Computed example of a mutant assay.
Amino acid sequence: HLACGALGSGECDLALAGGVTLILGSRTMRSFARMGMLSPTGRCRTFDAAADGFVRGEGCGVVVLKRLADALRDGDRVLAVIRGSAVNQDGRSDGLAAPSAAAQQALFREALERAGTDPQDVGMIETHGTGTPIGDPIEFSSLAQVYGVGRDRCALGSVKTNLGHLEPASGVSGLIKAVLCLQRGLVPPNLHFTEWNPAIAPEGTRFFVPTRLTEWPTGSSPRLAAVSSFGYSGPNAPVVLEPAPVAASSGRPVPRRPAG
């Protein structure tokens, strides 16, 4: 979000944005274990009735960002376009595992407004989806209030079921997954999902959890995806994405059109 702002204001012409996490000591792990936040089964079961906590993981992810016009001019291979993003802070909440639903909903709407996007056109949401019995229902409820009604189905993904919770790198890992889904027009399955958490009410929404490789759910063009991402200290940072222009995805320079 900060990098896009700097590019838009002309502060820079190229930016690197990413996150990394390594588990180099036991202190944080012991703290999470004492708080009962970690899955005793070692499985991230996002939105599932058997969700029993999150699984820590390690990783690094970085994306290169440029203004689209500059990338097209330079013949860069564009992977996706960030349509809009937003950031806010939860303020007071009931704890680390219980974020503010009101703050989440307000920010989803702000990111969509900046993207100039109708929430009904979003076919896939890469959720924060930690697999905690309290956090998952709150996130689902927030998403349902903003994205839940529409003419087509919408897939809820969580790469944490594959990689675990990468903590400072979890947002960029979700972003990278959403970009790959947009490129291919396919949504991979979430692991460890059998039945909905009983605290979640999917009836009346257009949401589903993919349990097999799934074609893109909406017929709208261009395809649109959203990323829902939160942080321990209360920040929320959603992003709305669309695929790269067809010519740009190959890295071939795009001829300039005459003015007028």
Rank of each mutant, 00 (worst) to 15 (best):
P245V: 11
S173V: 13
S141Y: 04
R184K: 14
S141F: 05
V62H: 10
P238A: 01
F140C: 08
P168Y: 08
L2I: 14
A237T: 12
V64E: 10
T41I: 05
A115N: 06
A115V: 08
I125C: 08
A178L: 15
T46C: 07
A155N: 09
P133R: 14
G135N: 09
G59H: 11
L241I: 13
L16P: 03
H128L: 06
G129E: 03
S85I: 07
S31C: 07
S173P: 00
V20Q: 05
R34S: 11
I23P: 00
F193Q: 01
R184V: 10
G19C: 13
I23G: 01
D90Y: 07
A248R: 04
I176C: 02
V146D: 04
G148I: 13
P238I: 00
G19S: 07
R73P: 02
A259M: 10
I176K: 01
D52S: 04
G42T: 05
N190Q: 11
G150A: 10
T161F: 11
Q104A: 10
W196D: 04
L180R: 09
Q183M: 15
A178F: 15
G234E: 04
D94Q: 14
V179A: 13
V122I: 15
A226W: 06
D70L: 06
L2H: 15
V209Y: 13
L79G: 01
P245I: 11
E113C: 10
V63S: 02
Q145E: 15
W196M: 08
V209T: 12
A226N: 03
A259L: 13
F47R: 02
S142C: 12
W196P: 02
A33L: 08
G231K: 00
P189N: 15
R109P: 07
R92Q: 04
T127W: 08
I125D: 01
A248Y: 10
L72A: 05
S173A: 15
G148D: 03
P243H: 15
H192P: 01
D136L: 05
Q120P: 01
T211L: 12
A259S: 08
E58S: 03
L180A: 14
A201M: 11
P119E: 09
L175D: 00
E195C: 12
F32G: 02
A71I: 01
V246Y: 12
R256G: 14
A17D: 06
S31Y: 10
F32L: 12
A103V: 07
F208C: 02
S85G: 11
V64T: 03
T21S: 12
P202Y: 12
N197K: 02
V87Y: 00
E195I: 04
T132G: 13
R184S: 15
D121G: 12
C44W: 04
L72W: 03
E242N: 04
P202W: 15
R223C: 11
A169F: 07
T28W: 09
P258C: 12
V64L: 11
L163Q: 09
P222V: 10
R45L: 05
G123Y: 13
P188D: 13
P99I: 11
R206Y: 05
H192R: 09
V240S: 06
E11Y: 10
L182N: 02
T205K: 04
G260K: 06
D118I: 05
E58R: 01
R43P: 03
A86K: 02
I138P: 01
L166R: 08
S9E: 09
H192E: 09
R73Y: 06
H192Q: 14
E195Y: 08
